[in-house]
Amino acid sequence: MKLLRRLGTAVFVLAALAAGQAVHSAEPNLNHALRPFPVAGEVGAEVAARTFTARVQLVRCAAALRIGEHVLDTQGVWIIAKLRVGARFKPTSIAYAAARDGAGKVYQTTDRVSLDLVSGGLTMQPGLPYEGEIAIEVPTASAGSLTLLLADNSLDQRMDSMTEIGLPISDGNACSAEPTTLLAPKAVS
Rank of each mutant, 00 (worst) to 15 (best):
H24C: 09
L3D: 15
I94R: 02
A135P: 07
S25P: 12
K82L: 12
A143D: 06
G102M: 08
V188Y: 04
V118F: 11
V23M: 08
S154P: 06
T74G: 01
F37T: 06
T180C: 02
A22V: 11
E42G: 13
P185R: 08
D111W: 09
A64C: 01
A40D: 15
L4P: 03
E137P: 05
V85C: 11
T140S: 01
L149C: 05
S25I: 01
A54S: 09
D111L: 11
I67W: 07
I67A: 13
G144H: 03
T147Y: 04
A103V: 03
S119R: 00
G102F: 10
T109L: 01
A98P: 00
G102Y: 10
S176G: 00
M124T: 14
S114G: 08
A81K: 03
A15K: 09
T9H: 09
I67G: 06
P185V: 11
P126R: 04
L7R: 00
P36M: 12
I169L: 11
M159V: 13
I80W: 02
V71D: 15
S161N: 06
G20E: 15
L167F: 03
Q108I: 08
S189P: 15
D152L: 05
A135E: 13
V71Y: 07
V188E: 03
L128Y: 10
A187F: 13
H70K: 10
R50P: 02
T147D: 04
G127Q: 00
L7Q: 10
L115W: 11
D156T: 09
G166W: 11
P126W: 10
L183F: 10
E69W: 06
P38Y: 09
L65I: 03
Q75C: 09
V77K: 08
G44D: 00
E164Q: 04
G8T: 07
K2G: 15
S161W: 10
G132K: 05
R84A: 08
P91R: 10
T181L: 08
L183M: 12
L7E: 14
A26W: 11
G104Y: 04
Y130H: 15
L65P: 04
L149F: 02
Q125M: 14
R6D: 15
L122D: 14
L150F: 05
A177S: 08
L83G: 11
N153G: 03
M1N: 07
D73P: 06
G144D: 05
Q75V: 11
A135H: 06
P168A: 00
K2F: 15
G132P: 03
G166H: 13
G41P: 13
E164S: 04
Y96E: 00
